[in-house]
Amino acid sequence: MFYPNSPQTSPQLTQIPYGQQYAMMQRQIQQPYHPFATTEPQARLYPYHYQGPIQQEQGGFITQQSTAASPQYVQMRVTPVDQSIMSGYPNQTANGSSSSSFNYNIHPQQQQQQQQQQQQLRHHAMPVGSVPLQDDRYRKQLIVNYLAPDVTSTDLHELFSRFGELDGARIIYDKQTNMSKGYGFVYFCHAEDAKEAVERMSGYEFHGKWLKVGYSTNPLNIVPSNSSPYVHAGSRGAAG
């Protein structure tokens, strides 16, 4: 039997160049792979992502010199942007860049009308829970959420009447099932009393439920100042 490094198959040491006398086997001759043993700084910083320098080929596509990437890492192929796409944008300079302001050559009167329309939209648009300043009635009506099913309009009136005089209180019921929808409205005579009720009743436990109280901004629920107070009856038909 002959071994790869046996004296019968191995040459004389004098015939082997210096430095390879003890590297006779194939696994010894093959050098191990060192990912950080390279002179390129990109490979030292990113050993798993770097795959060699990027070269520009004919046709405008950018390719990489090395083989496919590892399945664990996804390499994105980048193509140059066609400058003709950006030619339609206004205020574009000769080098292809555009300024931040756009001039669509709008007539001054049209621009003024658009600004007025935007101001009107901001004036009428009102986020949930906010209180408008032009109508004091919005500051007097509250919406009470997360009410228990057994709470009546009379219970709601008695709960909030300790903060001040009320114009009314009612629970909203479903017309088909005649069941409470879980929320109601309270109408105060003074805005200061309503503000105190919002601050003190939010998070209050009532009939096993934690109440959420806020201003009601729905104009359909506003009680006119010259109208008669609501009837605080315990029956659902009268309260709904």
Score class of each variant (00 low, 15 high):
F2E: 05
Y3K: 15
Y3C: 12
P4G: 10
P7C: 07
T9V: 11
T9D: 04
S10D: 04
S10R: 13
T14W: 13
T14P: 09
Q15R: 14
I16S: 12
I16A: 12
P17Y: 04
P17F: 02
Y18M: 06
Y18N: 12
G19A: 09
G19M: 10
Q20M: 15
Q20A: 08
Q20G: 15
Q20W: 06
Q21V: 02
A23Y: 06
A23P: 12
A23C: 07
M25G: 13
M25D: 11
I29V: 08
I29A: 15
Q30I: 05
Q30F: 14
Q30L: 04
P32W: 04
Y33M: 04
H34K: 14
P35I: 02
F36P: 14
T38F: 07
T39S: 12
Q42C: 07
A43D: 10
R44K: 15
Y46H: 15
Y46C: 08
P47G: 07
P47Y: 01
Y48P: 11
H49R: 15
H49T: 09
H49G: 11
Y50H: 15
G52A: 12
G52P: 09
P53K: 15
I54K: 15
I54N: 12
Q55Y: 04
E57R: 14
E57M: 15
Q58L: 05
G59C: 08
G60Q: 12
F61G: 13
Q64K: 14
Q65D: 05
S66I: 04
S66T: 07
S66C: 05
S66V: 05
S66D: 08
T67C: 10
A68G: 05
A68P: 10
A69S: 08
A69I: 08
A69C: 14
A69P: 10
P71D: 14
Q72D: 11
R77G: 10
T79A: 15
T79H: 12
P80S: 12
V81R: 14
D82V: 10
Q83M: 04
Q83I: 05
I85M: 08
M86K: 15
M86Q: 13
S87L: 03
S87I: 03
G88E: 06
G88Q: 13
P90A: 11
N91G: 10
Q92M: 14
Q92L: 06
A94Y: 11
A94S: 11
N95A: 12
N95M: 03
S97W: 09
S97R: 11
S97I: 10
S98A: 08
S98R: 13
S99W: 08
S100V: 08
S100H: 09
F102P: 07
F102A: 09
N103D: 05
H107Y: 12
P108L: 08
Q111E: 08
Q112L: 11
Q112I: 06
Q114K: 08
Q114Y: 12
Q114T: 09
Q114I: 11
Q117L: 12
Q118T: 08
Q120R: 10
Q120S: 08
H124E: 04
A125W: 15
A125H: 06
V128H: 06
G129W: 13
G129H: 08
S130M: 04
S130L: 03
V131T: 07
V131L: 11
V131D: 12
V131K: 11
V131N: 11
V131Q: 10
Q134L: 07
D135I: 04
K140P: 01
Q141W: 00
L142P: 00
N145C: 03
Y146K: 02
Y146P: 01
Y146T: 01
Y146A: 01
A148N: 12
P149E: 02
P149L: 14
D150S: 13
D150L: 11
V151L: 04
V151R: 00
V151D: 01
T152I: 13
S153G: 15
T154M: 07
T154P: 15
E158S: 11
E158V: 13
L159H: 00
S161Q: 12
S161K: 05
G164N: 00
L166F: 01
A169D: 01
R170Y: 01
R170A: 02
R170N: 02
Y173H: 13
D174W: 09
D174L: 02
Q176G: 07
K181L: 13
K181F: 01
F185I: 01
V186A: 15
V186D: 00
Y187M: 01
F188E: 00
A191G: 04
A191H: 05
A191W: 15
A194T: 08
K195L: 14
K195W: 15
E196H: 10
A197K: 00
E199V: 14
R200G: 04
R200A: 04
M201E: 00
S202Y: 14
S202V: 08
E205A: 06
H207A: 14
K209D: 01
W210K: 02
W210T: 02
L211I: 09
K212Q: 04
V213A: 09
V213G: 00
Y215G: 00
T217H: 02
L220H: 02
N221Q: 10
N221W: 15
V223T: 05
V223L: 09
P224N: 03
S225I: 11
N226F: 07
N226D: 08
Y230S: 06
H232G: 07
A233D: 10
G234T: 10
S235A: 11
G237R: 11
G240L: 06
